[in-house]
Design a binder for these strands. Structure first.
Lengths: 138, 138
DNA sequence: ATTAAAATACACCTGTTAAGTGTACTTTTG
DNA sequence: CAAAAGTACACTTAACAGGTGTATTTTAAT
């Protein structure tokens, strides 16, 4: 029950980009050095973030990455989902046939886990990168 | 970010035991059949639950398992921790030196993740097996 | 046009973990 | 003392996490 390392790196990369003046690019190499992330792995993660529409990439000389929208419009949930896909707390929530003999509808555990998952999603969605950035500035 | 299969099985085993009349034992074999859990794996999980003081085991002929305390005093958090150990949402929460270059105290991500972890723990602790059992009875 | 600096693509590797099994042993009741 | 239960611990197998190799494409500056 842990977020993976790629997600952690993604958080840091997005936070880094959030701290740049609007419109300014940063190369992957720079982010990697500043945040101590293996460059090749970071590039892979940045592609996921690009595919999810969280960052924009610019190729070629003096290319790099920038946020695709305002940091206030990017939440930790967005980042988690970009990297790991939708959050699933338990197998039975995604594959009801895995729910032993009980139907999901009748299984109290299923209901509880679903509710927990929703709480978690709400919590992750409550943190945006404008707020997180502000927190570093102090 | 998912609970593992052993934890899912543990939930089901504890729920099963919660449904028994107080003081009555159930053999692992029976639980395994009813809940469709591989018996050997279940036995292993039951040992974790026993070690955590959630269930009591009785050896020998006509032995088996029973809850060590009232179902109302057992929460989903107890079960998760018995099987997986304390919940850790992110590596940096358990190994601050993993926190890239930032000290935990200064890292807004660290604070956010810690808060999320606490919410999750609170949520898991809010479900006890007396309530979950009641929910199946209907 | 060419070059160099950037991102992209996709396959691969390697260690760890999840999930489960093999085999032998211990405890307890009838 | 036999059989039915739980215990112990090592092992296996597959999947996944985290990362790397190698080649390609795009673009700005010369």
């Amino acid at each position: 029950m842990r977020l993976n390392q790629a997600t952690d790196y993604a958080f840091r990369a997005v936070l880094y980009l959030s701290q740049l003046p609007k419109g300014q690019l940063a190369e992957a190499k720079l982010i990697a050095e500043q945040e101590r992330i293996p460059i090749r792995f970071l590039l892979k993660i940045l592609r996921l973030l690009t595919a999810a529409g969280i960052v924009e990439s610019y190729r070629g000389v003096s290319g790099g990455y920038a946020l695709a929208r305002d940091p206030g419009e990017i939440t930790m949930k967005d980042v988690v989902e970009a990297v790991e896909g939708p959050l699933v707390v338990n197998r039975c929530l995604v594959a009801p046939e895995e729910c032993s003999k009980n139907f999901a509808a009748r299984c109290p555990l299923h209901k509880a886990l679903f509710s927990i998952q929703q709480t978690l999603n709400r919590e992750l969605a409550s943190y945006n990168f404008a707020d997180l950035r502000a927190c570093t500035d102090k």
